[in-house]
Structure formats: C-alpha cells, structure tokens
Amino acid sequence: MTFKLIINGKTLKGETTTEAVDAATAEKVLKQYANDNGIDGEWTYDDATKTFTVTE
C-alpha cells in the first residue's frame, strides 16, 4: 500500500510517499524521514486517504 506524508513545516513544506504493509510501518518510516529532515510537530492520520500530516 502507498502512504502519503504531507509536511507543513516552518522551513520545509511538501509531500512524500512510502510503500508499506500497514499504517504502523508507514508511520515509523515517515516519522524517521521527518526526523532526519528536522521536522517536529503534531501528527495526524486519515485512514480513508492513507495520508499522514505533520504540522510544525
């Protein structure tokens, strides 16, 4: 399955996707991606669209 991350950061905005077997696995990968890029904020997840959003 494809999961999307929408980034609403102070210095970085955009989106990325990852392939994962489930939402929990995708969340780990996407949170690591955000952490690697210095993004720390509030996370939400929409199961209907398989989209995570992080807002700083």
Rank of each mutant, 00 (worst) to 15 (best):
F3P: 01
E15N: 08
F52M: 01
T18M: 10
V54Q: 01
K28C: 08
N35C: 12
L12V: 13
W43M: 04
D40F: 14
T51Y: 03
G14V: 15
D22I: 03
Q32D: 09
T25D: 09
T51G: 02
D46R: 03
M1T: 14
T51R: 03
Y33F: 11
V21N: 11
D22Q: 03
E42H: 12
T49C: 04
D46Q: 05
A20L: 03
V29D: 06
E19T: 14
L5P: 01
T2Q: 11
K31A: 05
T2C: 11
L5H: 00
Y45F: 06
V54H: 01
L30N: 01
N37Y: 14
A23W: 13
F52I: 01
T51V: 06
L12Q: 11
M1A: 12
I7E: 01
K13C: 12
T16R: 10
E27C: 12
V54N: 01
T53K: 05
Q32S: 08
V21S: 12
T53M: 08
M1V: 14
T55N: 08
M1N: 12
T55S: 08
E19W: 15
N37G: 05
D22C: 05
T17K: 07
E27A: 10
A48T: 11
K28D: 06
T17E: 10
G14T: 14
L12E: 07
G14W: 15
I6Q: 05
E42D: 11
L5M: 05
D46M: 04
K50R: 15
T55L: 05
A24Y: 09
K28R: 13
T51M: 04
K28A: 12
I39D: 01
T25L: 08
D36M: 11
I39K: 01
W43F: 05
A20Q: 10
K10M: 12
A34M: 07
N35W: 15
E15R: 07
T2H: 10
T44M: 09
W43Y: 02
F3L: 01
T11D: 10
I7S: 03
V29H: 08
D36T: 08
L5W: 03
W43H: 00
L5I: 04
K13L: 08
A48G: 10
V29I: 15
L5E: 02
E56Y: 08
N35M: 15
E56C: 08
G9C: 11
D36P: 01
Y45R: 01
G38C: 08
G14A: 13
K50N: 07
T25Q: 13
E27N: 05
N37C: 13
E42P: 05
I39R: 01
K50E: 03
G9D: 04
G9I: 13
E27R: 09
D22H: 04
T49W: 04
L12K: 12
E15V: 12
F52T: 00
A20M: 03
N8R: 11
T18I: 15
D46S: 05
T16E: 05
K10P: 09
F3C: 02
K4F: 14
A23N: 05
D47R: 07
D47G: 08
T51N: 03
T17S: 15
W43C: 02
K10N: 11
Y45C: 01
E19G: 05
D22N: 09
N35G: 08
G9Q: 06
Y33W: 15
T44I: 09
K10A: 12
T17V: 08
E19H: 13
K28P: 04
A24H: 09
A48R: 10
G9K: 07
F52Y: 06
T18N: 02
T51F: 02
I6Y: 06
N35K: 15
T16S: 07
E42S: 10
T51H: 03
E27L: 15
A26C: 02
T16A: 11
D40C: 12
V29C: 07
F52G: 00
I6S: 04
D46F: 04
W43T: 01
A34V: 06
L12I: 14
T53H: 07
K10W: 10
A24R: 09
D36K: 09
E27I: 12
I7V: 08
T18C: 14
T44C: 08
G9N: 06
T55W: 12
E56F: 09
W43P: 00
L12G: 10
Q32K: 13
G38N: 11
T55F: 08
N35Y: 15
A23V: 13
Y33R: 04
V54C: 06
W43A: 00
T55E: 06
A34Y: 02
T44R: 08
N8S: 07
F3K: 01
T55I: 08
G41N: 01
A34K: 01
G9M: 14
T17D: 05
T51Q: 05
N37M: 15
L30I: 03
V54R: 00
K50S: 06
D40S: 14
K4H: 12
K50I: 03
I6L: 08
A24V: 11
L5R: 00
M1E: 11
T53P: 00
F3D: 02
E15K: 06
G38D: 07
K4D: 03
M1R: 08
N37D: 03
A23K: 14
T55M: 05
T25K: 07
D47M: 08
T16I: 15
G9L: 15
D47L: 06
A48P: 06
G38L: 06
F3R: 01
A24G: 08
D36G: 06
I7P: 01
A24F: 10
F52R: 00
D22A: 03
A23H: 09
T25H: 13
T53W: 07
V54A: 03
Y33K: 03
N35E: 14
K13M: 10
I6H: 05
G9P: 03
M1P: 13
N35H: 15
N8L: 13
D40W: 14
K4C: 07
G14E: 12
N8A: 09
I7H: 04
D40P: 05
A34F: 03
L30D: 00
K13D: 06
N35A: 15
V54I: 09
G14N: 08
Y45A: 01
K10I: 15
L30M: 05
Y33A: 03
Q32F: 05
T49N: 09
E27F: 15
E27Y: 15
D46K: 03
D46H: 06
T18H: 06
E15T: 13
Q32G: 07
N8W: 11
A20N: 04
I39M: 04
K50M: 09
A34T: 06
A23Q: 12
E42K: 10
L30S: 01
E15I: 15
T25P: 01
E42C: 10
A26V: 02
T44S: 12
T11K: 12
Q32Y: 04
F52P: 00
K13T: 10
D47Q: 10
F3T: 02
T44P: 00
T53I: 08
G41Q: 01
T49D: 04
V29P: 02
T51P: 00
T11R: 10
N8T: 08
T53L: 05
V21K: 14
I6T: 05
K28S: 09
L5N: 01
E27G: 06
T2A: 07
N35D: 13
G38E: 06
A26Y: 00
A26Q: 00
D40K: 14
T25G: 07
K13P: 05
E42W: 12
M1I: 15
K4Q: 06
T11Q: 10
A26K: 00
G38T: 04
Y45L: 02
T49G: 05
I7Y: 12
E19N: 13
Q32A: 13
K31E: 03
A48D: 12
V54P: 00
G9S: 11
K10Y: 09
K31S: 04
E42G: 05
K4V: 12
D36N: 10
E15S: 11
T18K: 04
F3H: 04
L12T: 12
I6M: 06
E42V: 14
D46I: 04
V29Q: 13
T2I: 15
T17A: 08
T18V: 15
T11C: 15
K50V: 03
A24P: 09
E27T: 04
Q32M: 10
Y33Q: 03
